[in-house]
Amino acid sequence: MDEASAAGSASERLVQDEWFGSVRVTLPDEDSAVVRVEGPGVPTATLVRTGEVRDHPQAPVGTRDAARLTMTVGGDTAGLHLGAGRLTRSSFSVSAELPGRAYVLEPTSAFGGVLRRNGHQVAAFVNAEDELSAAWRPESACPSAEDAAVGYLLAAAFGTGAAHTGELVFEALLGAIGLPVR
Results as ranks from 00 to 15, higher is better:
Met1Pro: 13
Ser5Glu: 12
Ala6Thr: 05
Ala10Cys: 08
Ala10Asp: 10
Glu12Val: 13
Arg13Cys: 01
Gln16Ile: 10
Ser22Ile: 08
Thr26Phe: 07
Thr26Lys: 08
Leu27Asp: 00
Pro28Glu: 02
Asp29Glu: 07
Ser32Asp: 12
Ala33Met: 12
Val35Ser: 05
Arg36Ser: 13
Arg36Thr: 15
Arg36Gln: 14
Glu38Tyr: 05
Gly39Pro: 01
Gly39Cys: 07
Pro40Trp: 06
Val42His: 00
Val42Trp: 00
Pro43Ser: 02
Thr44Gln: 08
Ala45Ile: 00
Ala45Arg: 00
Ala45Gly: 04
Thr46Leu: 03
Thr46Asp: 04
Leu47Thr: 07
Arg49Asp: 05
Arg49Lys: 14
Arg49Trp: 05
Gly51Lys: 09
Gly51Asn: 11
Gly51Trp: 07
Asp55Asn: 14
His56Phe: 13
His56Glu: 12
Pro57Trp: 12
Gln58Met: 13
Pro60Phe: 04
Val61Ile: 15
Gly62Ile: 04
Thr63Tyr: 09
Thr63Phe: 05
Thr63Cys: 08
Asp65His: 10
Ala67Pro: 06
Arg68Leu: 15
Leu69Gly: 03
Thr70Phe: 03
Val73Tyr: 05
Val73Gly: 01
Gly75Cys: 08
Ala78Leu: 02
Gly79Met: 12
Gly79Ala: 14
His81Asn: 15
Leu82Ser: 06
Leu82Ile: 04
Ala84Gly: 12
Ala84Asp: 10
Leu87Arg: 09
Leu87Ser: 10
Leu87Met: 10
Leu87Gly: 11
Thr88Asp: 08
Arg89Asp: 04
Ser91Lys: 04
Ser95Phe: 09
Ser95Trp: 10
Leu98Asn: 00
Leu98Lys: 05
Pro99Tyr: 01
Gly100Cys: 07
Gly100Met: 07
Gly100Asn: 01
Ala102Ser: 15
Val104Met: 06
Glu106Thr: 15
Pro107Ala: 05
Pro107Cys: 06
Thr108Gln: 12
Phe111Trp: 09
Gly113His: 00
Gly113Arg: 00
Val114Leu: 06
Leu115Ser: 06
Leu115Asn: 02
Leu115Thr: 07
His120Pro: 09
His120Leu: 15
His120Glu: 15
Gln121Arg: 15
Val122Asn: 05
Val122Leu: 11
Ala123Ser: 12
Ala123Thr: 10
Ala124Gly: 14
Val126His: 06
Asn127Leu: 02
Glu129Thr: 13
Glu129Leu: 13
Asp130Glu: 14
Leu132Met: 09
Ser133Tyr: 00
Ala134Thr: 03
Ala135Pro: 05
Arg137Asp: 13
Ser140Asp: 14
Cys142Ile: 15
Cys142Tyr: 11
Pro143Cys: 10
Ser144Tyr: 04
Ala145Leu: 05
Ala149Gly: 02
Gly151Gln: 03
Tyr152His: 01
Leu153Gly: 08
Ala156Gln: 03
Ala157His: 02
Ala157Thr: 02
Ala157Phe: 00
Phe158Pro: 03
Gly159Thr: 01
Thr160Ala: 07
Gly161Ile: 02
Gly166Arg: 15
Val169Trp: 10
Glu171Arg: 15
Glu171Leu: 13
Glu171Tyr: 08
Ala172Gly: 14
Ala172Thr: 07
Leu173Gly: 13
Leu174Gln: 12
Leu174Cys: 13
Ala176Trp: 10
Ile177Gly: 06
Leu179Phe: 10
Val181Met: 07
Val181Phe: 02
Val181Tyr: 01
Arg182Asn: 11
